[in-house]
């Protein structure tokens, strides 16, 4: 099986580690991590991911701006994006979906929920 490249964009190291562990439960997934949107875009330039998981509230460049930038780039338009949201973040979640996010996972993060959403989007 060829590697599936997943990029996690999350400013909290604790959340990032949990998401990375969840993704590693999927055979063949290799992960990269970024601590904000700018770092995320830099990582994408280095290696095009097959799927992106991003938080919304981040310093420097937030998740909404990051999604907007990714979707504005022709060869990145079709990369599935999963947004990590909080329960109270209905408005941000809607904005993210309007900007082109494909799915969302709500905190507190349950690894099986992350695995399930990623597998569905990648049709694994």
């Amino acid at each position: 099986m060829s590697n599936i490249k997943a990029l996690v964009v999350e400013d909290s190291p604790t959340m990032r580690q949990l998401l990375l562990y969840a993704l590693k439960r999927i055979p063949g997934v290799v992960t990269r991590e970024a601590s904000d949107g700018v770092d995320g875009l830099r990582q994408i330039q280095e290696e095009r991911p097959d799927i992106i998981l991003t938080d919304i509230n981040m310093p420097i460049m937030d998740g909404l701006k990051f999604i907007e930038q990714v979707r504005a780039t022709d060869d990145l338009k079709n990369i599935p994006i999963v947004v990590i949201t909080t329960e109270g973040g209905d408005e941000d979640r809607q904005k993210a979906m309007d900007l082109g996010a494909d799915a969302f996972v709500t905190k507190p993060i349950q690894a099986p929920a992350v695995v399930s959403v990623v597998k569905a989007l990648l049709e694994l």
Partner: peptide, 17 residues
């Protein structure tokens, strides 16, 4: 086992952090 594995992963991450 999957549940236990996920729980252990969460505890590991929490502990290491």
């Amino acid at each position: 086992i999957e549940r236990e594995n996920n729980d252990l992963a969460a505890l590991y991450v929490a502990q290491s952090q």
